[in-house]
Design a protein around this nucleic acid. Sequence first.
DNA 1: ATAAGGATGACCT
DNA 2: GGTCATCCTTATA
Length: 218
Amino acid sequence: MTKPAREAEHAGSTFDLTTWRPLPREFFDAPPEQVARLLLGKILVRRGRGGPLAGRIVETEAYLGEHDAAAHAASGRTARNAVLYGPPGHAYIYNIYGLYACFNISCLPEGVPGCVLVRALEPLQGIAEMRRNRGLNGSAGIHQLTSGPGKLCQALDISRAEDNGLDLTRADGRLGLVEDNFQCGEIRVTPRVGISRAADWPLRFFLAGHDCVSGRRG
DNA sequence: ATAAGGATGACCT
DNA sequence: GGTCATCCTTATA
């Protein structure tokens, strides 16, 4: 250990690995649109072999229950979406387009489906490893590492096979969410990205003007 | 603009 | 059982 792992590499974070406690279950036992908003500014931590990988959440989307045609719960409970019906605060990870993973967090009490999709992070810690995981060289900008749901899973080495169903509230878990007392500034709300049904519902939340937000940032 | 890529669920037999 | 359209995306042109 040449250097204490307590200091964030990237500017502006008070994140301290020696004291981090995951957000409690009650935080997630709430409607997805509320959790999605409150997750902005929090830190997603991945405990890896080469040390922690961490980033600040800058973009989220809420997916509601069976009345939300864009949600995986829309057609009722299946083997794939069982986590959505389980207790809050668990990782729901699915593969998309045969290529990428998407990381969601279950909300609402057991039996009631709903989740938040984490769409983008600002890399804070383990940036070199994120670059490696993404197959990018040193010239790739910070904002290319985790500015999209598939990108951030690749950067943090999150996969359905390894991580689906994980309890995110365990202090010793591989994945967790941490309070950072970060001042978010203006939060912008728009329709969700990449869906065809319920396409006008205002359930996407992101930090206005942040470089690491995916796609169009207005 | 669009191809890549594979799992999933809907809808049959 | 089988087939098929769809998909909460990304990196290329």
